[in-house]
Every structure is written in C-alpha cells, then in structure tokens.
Design a protein around this nucleic acid. Structure first.
Lengths: 261, 261
DNA sequence: TCATATGTTCAATATCAATGAACAATATCG
DNA sequence: CGATATTGTTCATTGATATTGAACATATGA
C-alpha cells in the first residue's frame, strides 16, 4: 500500500507526475477505486483526479465500471507490459539457464529484480510435474521475507537497505518472518558470507526457497534467481549442499549479463 | 505500428494524452526509441518528449540506456500489468474451463479479447507435454489472421469490422493469410454460420487453430477461446467434428459471464 | 423517504507545459 | 583523423491549460 511515492529525480512535467501517481495507486489490494478515494489518498483534488481518469480511460489505460462507476486499470497496460518483457531480452538470456536449473532440481525457478524497494518476478519456470509454489510473472513482493528479496537486499549499500526497510516496513507473513531490523542485518551478513539466501517459510508457510544474487556487468547485484518448493523437499540440513550448484548457475547468468545494465 | 491513435472520447488533460501517446509509441517492433525519433513520429516537439520521458523515468515508467541514451519502457509497467490481470478475476472464471479444454484436446488453449482493433491474449494454458505453439500472455496480434481475432470480428457490426480492417490493414503473414476484404467477409459469414473460426496456418505456417466466440451477459461477443496446435494434429477434415466440444466449452464460459461487463 | 456520499460539470485564474534556440556529446562521413 | 551532422539536454519566456471550488446529479444507505 505505501507504494505511492513522490519521485526523487527531477520530473519536469508535474501534471504527468500526478497522473502516474494515480495509475500507481492501483494495486493488487486496491484494483478498483473511486475518484474521491484516490483523491484523498494522494492528496490531489477530486476534479483533477476525475480529469486524469477520464483522459486515461479515453486512452485505454483505465476503464470505468458502468455499474459501480469506479475505475480499474485498462487492458492497454497489458500490451505495454508485454513490450517490457519482450524488449528486455531477458527470456532469451535467462530462461535457458532457468530451465537447466529446473531440470536439475525439479523445482520451480524464479527470477526477480528490485523495483522501488520491492521485488518483481520477471520469469518463472515451473517443474514439469504440477507445482505447489506457482507464482505469476509480474507479481511483486516485499524484500525482507523472500529469498530473492534478501539476496538483493544483502548486496545493497547499508543506507539503501535501511531506506527500503523503513519505507516498506517489515510485515509479518508467517511466524518465521523476520520483523526485527537487527535480526535482519545479521541474516543479510550471513547471506553475504555464504553467497546464497534462504527463505525458511518466511513468506508462505511450508515453502522454502534458496536464492542467489545475479550481478550485472559492473558487478552490481540487482537481480536474483531462486528455487522454491515444499519444505519436505528442501530440508534445512540439505540446503547448504543444494545451494552450491545454484550458485554456479547464478554465476553463469551473471557472466552472460555483459549487456544488462 | 499504426498503434498511436488520438483518443475519440473527450480527454480533458491534453498534456497527459501526449504522455500516454509517447508510452504507446513503444511496441514490440520498436521497444527502444530515441527522443527525436518519438517526437517526429508523433508530431510532438523534441523538448516536450524529453520532458515527458524524464518524468516517466523518475516514476519508473521508462528507463534510459546509459550507453545509447535511448529509452525503453520501465519495469514499473510490469507491476501494473499484473494488477490488471489479477483484478479482472478472469483467471478464477476462465482458467478452470480452459484447463478442462486442455485436458480434453491436449493442445494449447488461448483466451483473448479485442483491444483497439487487435486481439490481446489474456490467458494461456499449455498442454502438459512441451508445446509447439507457445504464446505469451499480454501479446497482441492482428484480428484478420488469427482464429480468436476472426471469431470476434465475425460478431462485430459490419461498420466496426470495416473500421478495424481499414485501420489495421491486412498484413500477409503466410501464403494462407486472407488479404482480400471480400474474401474475409465470406469467411466471417461462414464463421457466424458454423459457430467457430478456423485459422488454417494463416498466421504461423504449420499451426492451425479453432476458436469460438465468448459472450458477455448481454450477448455481445468480445472475447474468444481457441485451441491451437501443429497441422498434423488438427487435420482439416477433422476440424468440424473437433469444434463441437469446443463450442460447448465456450458456451460454458459465456454462461459464467454474468458478472463480466 | 430523507440524508449522506460519490461521480460529474463548468467557468475563471494562476500555473506551468510547450516552445525554440543554443549547448554538449556522440555518431557519421569524407 | 578531422569535419559535419545528429541526438540528447538545458533554460528562459509565454500563452495555453491544468487546477480549483462550488454546484449539480446520481447513487447509497439508514
């Protein structure tokens, strides 16, 4: 919910900032919103929000429910999302390796990057058997409670890491979720030392993940790959050993990332 | 490419219209663009486009390649796309039926709607075996050469159908692609008569599809479901018979669409 | 049925988005 | 390798227009 942020860089067109903030205010928790609802949350005047929504509707970016008169995001955005995915060339580079990982572990494989203090899953490769831990591409999640998130957090500057946590908070999802900052810092230090992150049922009960950082051409970590599956198939005692091949696969992707910025 | 359209409805915030047109100008064919390139295509001044892009970048909607200084759509849009998909509740309603279709035919199943004269694939269900006709959710395609497209076209008003074709053209993809309007009209009449549409390798050589229209609560067709697979598994002689169960599955979805607007 | 809330319209004004010219940095060509 | 064209970027000015508040219409709920 605290996803509506004022831009830090210079943004010359302030009316556009408002409009994009309106679009941003739609989320999985709030997929359908009314005019006044948005206006109050963002502190923008009602008529302004109305004008923005009307314009966005004419362009296919939102659509209004004729019955409730409330608004939701429009189909047009799906097309843009597709352009993002195809354009990144991620699939060509990352997916082949992910499939090797899937074949090796026979578990679901995820690839995620950081975006505005959260992780966004860009690619998913499911095991051939029907999987328990299905996950949609494009989904975003908090960083403190996911394997991919912690793997990326661990390689941020301490300032940036603190900024992310203080901005996003540390919501508790399960009894294993780390909700204490000091504890998280110890965990991140451990991740840096061993080279992989473990999500020990911290986000979804019964699901464990192992995640490794992915580096770009100047060595900066801003992506992560993970395998995830039911806790019986990823017992805690086995994880240290299971993580080793995954780290090699991760290094392989990093190697292919000359082009990635 | 002719996707950049001026809105027909009233759009009070003209600066926002420009900005959204800039975002729209990114496509699968043009995923990366320069400032002047966009400015010239849209007839907007260079500095204006620059300001729009800078603002969008600050908000995460586009990102600039530090080397080429050109722009591409940003990751933020993926998150919005996810909100669209989840919010539609399509998955809950449509996917279960699609899975039944997949299990029945053992072929890839697609669900698409019309958007601005093209079809957008909203859901895909792959057969358990590795599929030949893989297709990404969010992808858009022309209507005259796809099964789902023709199924929807066939149930539009003649005026709207002609508007779509004259706007989008009839690009030739294979030697089977229908590129003549009169021929297309005969084909659409046939589709209305028999209740299903056939894509006989008109989009991709070697791939056939059978598509059925999906109706909403007032009987308007604005979606379609198809099965697609290699031509050997969908021989022309068998299609009429294969289409019958698919029409029932389609009717089933239409029935569940009391809620869809 | 009345009262409250929510979406919508509209005219007026101050804001700020658009503009064009100039600069810097890169790419292209001779 | 140097000259030229091209592209991204800056900035001050100004005329268009986004914003605003108040009023209306419609829907919701007691």
């Amino acid at each position: 919910m605290p996803d509506t942020k004022v831009p830090d860089k210079k943004a010359p067109v302030s009316s556009l900032v408002k409009a994009l903030r309106v679009l941003d205010s739609f989320s999985l928790e709030q997929p359908e919103q009314g005019v006044t609802e948005i206006a109050e949350r963002l502190g923008i005047h009602k008529s302004t929000v109305y004008n923005i929504l009307t314009t966005c509707e004419a362009m296919g970016y939102v659509q209004q429910d004729p019955h409730t008169r409330r608004y939701r995001l429009g189909l047009h955005i799906l097309r843009l999302g597709q352009v993002v995915r195809e354009g990144m060339d991620l699939r060509r580079v990352v997916v082949p390796v992910m499939e090797r990982v899937r074949d090796y572990y026979r578990e679901a494989v995820h690839f995620a990057v950081e975006l505005n203090g959260q992780v966004v899953y860009l690619e998913t490769v499911q095991p051939l058997e029907r999987s328990v831990a299905s996950l949609a591409v494009g989904k975003s999640a908090y960083m403190h409670c996911t394997g991919v998130g912690k793997a990326i957090l661990a390689h941020m500057s301490p300032e940036r890491m603190h900024a992310v946590i203080s901005e996003q908070g540390m919501a508790q999802y399960t009894q294993n979720t780390i909700t204490d900052l000091a504890e998280l810092e110890i965990e991140l230090e451990k991740i840096r030392r061993q080279g992989y992150a473990v999500d020990n049922m911290e986000y979804e009960w019964g699901i464990r993940c192992i995640a490794v950082p992915i580096r770009n051409e100047i060595g900066v970590v801003h992506a992560s790959m993970s395998i995830s599956g039911p806790s019986e198939r990823l017992p805690l005692e086995a994880i240290a050993e299971m993580a080793q091949p995954l780290m090699h696969f991760g290094a392989d992707i990093s190697k292919r990332f000359g082009w990635l910025r």
